[in-house]
Design a protein around this nucleic acid. Structure first.
Lengths: 152, 152
DNA sequence: TCTGAAAACAAAAAAATTTTCTGCCGATGG
DNA sequence: CCATCGGCAGAAAATTTTTTTGTTTTCAGA
C-alpha cells in the first residue's frame, strides 16, 4: 500500500491528536468526510496506525521516577535472552526494553514511585534473574523531551 | 482531586484503548454513561489525561532504526544545558531526551531511516553543537518491549 | 435525628459524529 | 467505444457524544 501526501498528513494529525473528527481532518486536507474516513480505515488495516491511546500524566499518578538501566547478561546464550525477555515482558514497570549494540546487552526504561520503590523493584524482579550479570541504573533528573510522534 | 478505583479503572482502559466508547467503559465499571462521561472530563481537566494520540508503526514509515545516545556536555554550565535543550527540542528525530545522573549528562532516543541517515543527522545536528563534548551511540538491534501504559 | 447542600448518578433528549449507501466522474484497459 | 475501477461527494442511517432534567446518596451542621 502506497501512501500519498494526504495519507501522511492524516497520519501526522492523528498522531498529534487522535480526537480530531474526520470532519476536521477533511477540512484540513480539502476533502469530504467520506474519503478521509476510508483512508483512515485503510491506514488502520494496513498497520500504519497501530492503536489509539490516552497518554497519562506519570507524575500525577505517583510515578515520579524514571530510570534507565543498562543490563549485561551473564552468558549471551539463547536461554539467557529468552529468560530475560520473558521476565521483562511481564513487568509493567518496564515501559521499554531493547537489545542494543555496544558494551552492554539491554537498555530498559523503568518507572517507579520513588527511589525506594525502584530499589524494591530492582531487588525483587531484576537482580533475581539467573540470566543477569550486571545492571547499571541511571536516574532521570529532568525530562527535556518526550513524544510518541514519528517525524513524517 | 482524589481518584477512586473507578477513575483508575477508566484511566487504565483509556491508556490501553482510547477508542472505547463511554458506553463500553460504563458497562465495564457498572455505571451509566453520564457519570463515566463526567469522570473522563474531570480527569482530562485535572491533567491526569494529557492527550489522545494515534501510535504509528515506525518501521512502516521507514524509520527502521532506533538509537540511544549518551551525551556528555563540554561544560556543565547553564548556557550549555540551555543550548542543548533548545536544540534537541527542535529536532523531530529525537523522541526522548532526559538529563540523567551518572557518568554522562543526557540520554537521547533518536529514530532514523537507517544507519546512514542517522550518521547524517548526527553530523549535522548533534556534533555541531558547541555544548557537546562527547556522544556514544547505541543501536537498537531488537525491541523487546515498548509501551506507553503506566502501571496503575 | 433531621435538614440542607453538594456530589454522584440515571434516564432521556438533543446535537454531533461515524458509518453506510448511492451515484458521479475521470482514468484505464480490453 | 464502452465497461470497470478507484476516489470522491452528498445524503441517509446508525451510533455516539453531550446536554438537560431530576433522583438518590452522602455528609456536615443544627
Amino acid at each position: 500500500m502506497a501512501l500519498d501526501t494526504t495519507d501522511l498528513s492524516i497520519l501526522n494529525k492523528l498522531q498529534a491528536n487522535a480526537q480530531l473528527t474526520t470532519k476536521e481532518i477533511a477540512a484540513a486536507v480539502n476533502l469530504s468526510v467520506t474519503p478521509v474516513h476510508d483512508r483512515i480505515r485503510k491506514l488502520e488495516r494496513a498497520g500504519y496506525i497501530e492503536r489509539y491511546v490516552a497518554l497519562l500524566n506519570r507524575k500525577k499518578l505517583g510515578k515520579s521516577l524514571v530510570v534507565y538501566c543498562n543490563v549485561t547478561l551473564d552468558k549471551q546464550r539463547k536461554e539467557s535472552f529468552e529468560e530475560f525477555n520473558a521476565a521483562v515482558s511481564r513487568l509493567p514497570e518496564v515501559l521499554e526494553c531493547s537489545v542494543v549494540s555496544g558494551s552492554f546487552d539491554y537498555l530498559l526504561k523503568v518507572i517507579a514511585n520513588d527511589v525506594e520503590a525502584y530499589n524494591a523493584f530492582y531487588q525483587q524482579n531484576l537482580s533475581v534473574l539467573q540470566s543477569v550479570l550486571h545492571i547499571s541504573s541511571f536516574f532521570v533528573m529532568s525530562e527535556v523531551k518526550s513524544t510518541t510522534e514519528i517525524p513524517i
